[in-house]
Write a protein that binds this DNA or RNA. Structure first.
Length: 434
RNA sequence: GCGGCUUUAGCUCAACUGGUUAGAGCGCAGGACUGUGACUCCUGAGGUUACCGGUUCGAUCCCGGUAAGCCGCCCCA
């Protein structure tokens, strides 16, 4: 009957304190930075009609082929929990006729995505993406703005060792010719490869280029690169993207074999990959951000002809990465006030609440108890300062405040502050302790 | 989806080739200090050794299954 423990669903994790603070920091930096770049936040539902993803992401991709959480709702509709954010954003863009009200639209979103995959570090069934979409600009400056936004984000958040990889897939006009060449090239060696590779060969030949299979490595290194086949317009576009990136000081690496898994990409594609010198906290899940241009997606989904560029970042991976380089940081109160039983306790509590309402980070122990225990508690929550408030303090209208963050073996440091001067002192102490 | 590894207290890990009351550190709780003070000392509470079954006189240890996690492939953020 009762008492049976129920665990969470495999691959879907809870985020609890103190780890939540890393998430909130990322979210805060994102909101502020994206706003400065002119991007507005959108929120779309977790689920969409299955058809949306089949048509945009591509029928033969693994995402659509075997990784979607799809179910039939009570109205007999086929519904899918979104496996990515670009298609829902495009759907909303079309559905609300945004193209009719503004020629240029820049959006971003954050939220959970769902894919039924084998679990690994940095790869979950429910994962969170932070993505941006820019509609309406064909100019290479738009590609560059989006890429620069990513680079600025990594810099601001303090993620080291991410390198930008860049490639161009062309506008699609020359792709059939390229694919034919590629198939021809791999045909002699594909026989010795795995079933996975053979399936890729048939259905999604470009994917072979980032296969890790031993028998294919030699061929991969010599395989024709799509960038040598692309149309003149795409070539010029790509050259400008590269030139502008150099101009604004964003470092990149050309990666002739960079192909992306979703069907809708055209022209510029890019990835930010975590490549530290030592241990890699992400293992083989090193891609932290992937994006590119998808000039035909909006039209293919029934909208107007509108070019677009965007990217998606894996926030779970970002969190993992930040924790591996910075550890988990926990916010702490500036001042912890200890209370005594007696008539002054009400005053002490009122003081705590008043200070909080004025914007100060002040804590106390609502359980009361011995002052020693309260001070222990203050130490546990890493309070910067501690002061008892009892009969003496109430009478003298001043606090004796102890420094709780003294280095090992240092002499005690206690300051006496009048209640009237407390706000000014806290302002100063808050700045120094955070 | 394929191959390999792992699972002992809330956390990190012990326990000789299967042998009886499964340990430690951290954390948590209490006391020394019957309320002006924490980082000291003492004490305590937590385990059907992931779950189900098998072999055995006897299983944390061996075998099978299930679940969860990890590594590589695949895929991708």
């Amino acid at each position: 009957m009762s008492g049976q423990k129920i665990s969470g669903v495999k691959g879907m994790n809870d985020i609890l304190p103190p780890q939540i603070e890393t998430w909130q920091r990322i979210e805060a930096v994102a909101r502020s930075l994206f706003a400065r770049y002119g991007f507005s936040e959108i929120r779309t539902p977790i689920v969409e009609h299955t058809e949306l993803f089949v048509r945009s992401v591509g029928e033969v991709t693994d995402i659509v082929g075997k990784e979607m959480y799809t179910f039939t709702d009570k109205g007999d509709r086929s519904i899918t929990m979104r496996p990515e954010g670009t298609a829902p954003a495009a759907r909303a863009y079309i559905e609300h006729g945004i193209a009719n009200t503004e020629p240029l639209t820049r959006w971003f979103y954050m939220g959970p995505m769902f894919r039924y995959e084998r679990m690994k570090t940095g790869r979950y069934r429910s994962f969170t993406q932070l993505g941006a979409e820019a509609y309406g600009a064909m100019d290479p400056a738009q590609d560059v703005e989006v890429i620069a936004l990513c680079a600025a984000f990594f810099k601001e958040i303090g993620v080291p060792d991410v390198v930008l990889k860049l490639n161009s897939l062309g506008d699609g006009s020359t792709r059939p010719a390229y694919l034919a060449k590629l198939k021809e090239f791999f045909a002699p060696v594909i026989g010795g490869a795995s079933e996975d590779a053979k399936r890729a060969f048939e259905q999604n030949t470009m994917r072979l280029l980032d296969s890790k299979e031993e028998v294919l490595q030699d061929a991969i290194s010599k395989a024709p690169a799509i960038i040598d086949f692309i149309d003149e317009g795409s070539k010029a576009h790509f050259a400008t993207v590269c030139r502008l990136l150099e101009k604004i000081g964003v470092l990149y690496e050309l990666d002739r074999r960079l192909v992306r898994g979703l069907d809708y990409y055209t022209r510029t594609t890019f990835e930010f990959v975590y490549q530290p010198k030592g241990d890699n906290a992400l293992g083989t899940a090193g891609t932290v951000c992937g994006g590119g241009r998808y000039d035909r997606l909006v039209k293919e989904l029934g909208g107007p002809e509108k070019p677009a560029v965007g990217f998606a970042m894996g926030m779970d991976r970002l969190v993992l990465l930040l924790e591996s380089v910075k550890g988990v940081q926990r916010s702490a109160p500036t001042l912890f006030i200890g209370t005594f039983d007696g008539p002054e306790r009400d005053e002490a509590i009122a003081l705590v609440m008043a200070l909080r309402n004025e914007g100060f980070n002040v804590d106390f122990d609502p359980r009361g108890g011995k002052l020693g225990k309260q001070k222990e508690r203050a130490s546990k929550v890493n309070a910067a300062w501690f002061a008892g408030y009892g009969a003496t303090e109430a009478a003298e209208r001043k606090l004796k405040i102890d420094n709780m963050r003294l280095p090992e073996g240092a002499p005690k440091e206690t300051v006496e502050i009048s209640l009237d001067g407390l706000r000014a002192w806290l302002n100063d102490a808050g700045k120094r302790s955070s």
